[in-house]
Amino acid sequence: MLRWSFLLNRYVVTFGTIAVAAALWNLYIAFNDDGIVEGRVVGPSGQPVAGAEVILSERTLLVTEPRQRVTTDEAGTFTITGHRYHRVWLKAVKPEIGASPQTEYRLYFRGANLHLEEPLRLEAGAS
């Protein structure tokens, strides 16, 4: 017991805490970096929209480049898997109804799972 008491100084405690925090953070990342984006698409009046195309884009230096596209199911939900970005732009389009504004979502690490609380709302007339 006494032999380890020399470890109880502020250097060991400080750096130990940092190391533990870093390890925990990396553990958290390891379990949450599947690159899953889940969300819903709704129309102007709030009803779920099936068959809308959701485009995930990455911003390169000047322009946003579409990287993945998925289509919503009957309940208006969509799931994107396997993105590898720490900033994603999402946009939903359904030609007959309209499009949602392209919105940026910033993530804490590359490929972080993202569950959209707010649905992507299509606006009539926009494209």
């Binding site: 720490h86 900033r87 910033r106």
Partner: peptide
Amino acid sequence: PHLFYYVDVWY
């Protein structure tokens, strides 16, 4: 306030 600038630096 947000921490996303730190994420940007990291990547």
